[in-house]
Amino acid sequence: MAITVSIELNRNLDIPASYDEVFDLLADVPKSASHFPKVDKLVDLGDNAYRWEMEKVGVDKHAIQSVYACTYHADKDAGTISWTPVKGEGNGVVSGSWVITRKDDNLTTLKFQTSAELTVPLPSLLKLAISPVIKHEFNSLVDTYMNNLKQAF
């Protein structure tokens, strides 16, 4: 038995750095991922696709791990970086984008949007109880990531 939890997140963020610095960091997936908390492993699948293997949460046989893969597309002229799911990789399906806008020479605005579906091997009876916990954890990870990015500049 398994349950699927759907998550939608949107964040806006001002970064005290130039457009080029911000874009270059975010377009470099391993460098950007180094600021994301609780990543156990980032596996390069080639062709700008990466598998994210997050740290396990829980204890022994009740531990769950999020694993998903995305292909990344960066367009510096348009100010966008997007990611689309790689089918058949892991227990999650994640897509999203960054929209990057130059405010002035030393201030860049980011719009972050992502949607995820995570399937975990738990009885459907637990969906009502576990779904808010998973959503809270995902929100917390993204908030920490945003703070880490801000501090990187």
Rank of each mutant, 00 (worst) to 15 (best):
K41D: 14
L42N: 11
L42P: 10
V43H: 09
V43G: 06
D44I: 01
D44K: 06
L45M: 08
D47M: 06
A49V: 00
A49E: 07
A49F: 08
E53H: 11
E53Y: 12
K56F: 03
V57M: 04
G58C: 05
D60N: 12
Q65R: 15
V67P: 01
V67T: 10
V67E: 07
Y68P: 02
Y68H: 14
A69C: 01
C70A: 11
H73N: 13
H73R: 14
A74I: 03
A74L: 11
A74W: 10
D75Y: 11
D75W: 11
K76W: 08
D77N: 14
D77T: 06
A78Q: 15
G79N: 06
G79F: 07
T80W: 07
S82F: 05
W83A: 00
W83D: 02
T84R: 15
K87Y: 04
G88N: 05
G88S: 11
G90L: 01
N91L: 00
N91Y: 09
G92D: 11
G92A: 13
G92I: 00
V93W: 03
V94C: 09
W98F: 13
W98N: 03
T101V: 11
R102L: 06
D104L: 03
D105N: 15
D105K: 09
N106M: 09
T108W: 08
K111N: 08
K111E: 10
F112V: 05
F112Q: 08
S115T: 12
S115C: 00
E117Y: 09
E117W: 09
V120P: 05
